[in-house]
């Protein structure tokens, strides 16, 4: 364990460091859910994306997939900027960036919902099963991230965070990036392979 050093602390360890390690362990654990779903997708469907019934086009909407991927990437940038702003005490910028992240997250979720509505496969067939499950589990993480960002945004407007004390912002933003990392793997597995 490379993180052994702080055990020698005399005055007790730093609370933020404890929280941060806890959050990373949570990501570590969660990543296995996504890894297993990803493996299940390849186990059941191999390296294929089925074609639309009665045509030789792929059943997934490539343009929509690329669009929501870019939106999620953009939201990661705004989240990063927001966190950095709070770290340096630029609260106004921070507020706007968190709000922008929330809006982009909602657009992403809307994109997924649209994809679900217009999908050319049903949840009763194998590809539909893995597609709806993977996007569903991911979108539920996006929505929980949006809710947490909302809570943090309200507290931020009330002036609770500053340069010294902004762990809730950092924690939620880390969660947001984690959800983005998941999509980095899910997007090619569901749309591109």
């Amino acid at each position: 364990m490379a993180v052994a050093a702080p055990a020698m602390h005399h005055k007790g360890p730093d609370r933020t460091a404890i929280n941060r390690l806890g959050l990373w362990l949570f990501f570590f654990s969660e990543s296995l859910i996504f890894a297993l779903l990803l493996s299940s997708r390849f186990f059941l469907e191999g390296l294929n994306i089925p074609l639309k019934h009665g045509s030789d086009e792929q059943a997934v909407d490539q343009v929509l997939g690329l669009a929501i991927t870019v939106i999620l990437l953009l939201s990661s940038v705004t989240a990063f900027t927001g966190e950095t702003a709070f770290e340096h005490g630029r609260k106004r910028l921070g507020h706007w960036m968190i709000l922008a992240t929330i809006v982009l997250g909602l657009i992403f979720a809307g994109g997924v919902a649209y994809e679900w509505k217009t999908a050319h496969f049903t949840r009763g067939e194998a590809f539909g099963t893995v597609f709806f499950t993977m996007t569903g589990v991911h979108a539920s993480h996006v929505m929980s991230g949006v809710i947490m960002l909302g809570l943090v945004w309200v507290q931020a407007l009330r002036g609770k965070y500053n340069e010294k004390n902004h762990w809730p912002v950092s924690g939620v933003v880390m969660y947001w990036h984690f959800v983005d990392v998941v999509w980095v793997f899910f997007y090619p597995a569901l749309y591109l392979v």
Partner: peptide
């Protein structure tokens, strides 16, 4: 409860999963 087919061989699922 969701009508999915992870383990339904007939629809492309696999109980071994």
């Amino acid at each position: 409860i969701g009508g999915m087919s992870f383990f339904n061989e007939a629809n492309g699922g696999d109980p071994l999963l």
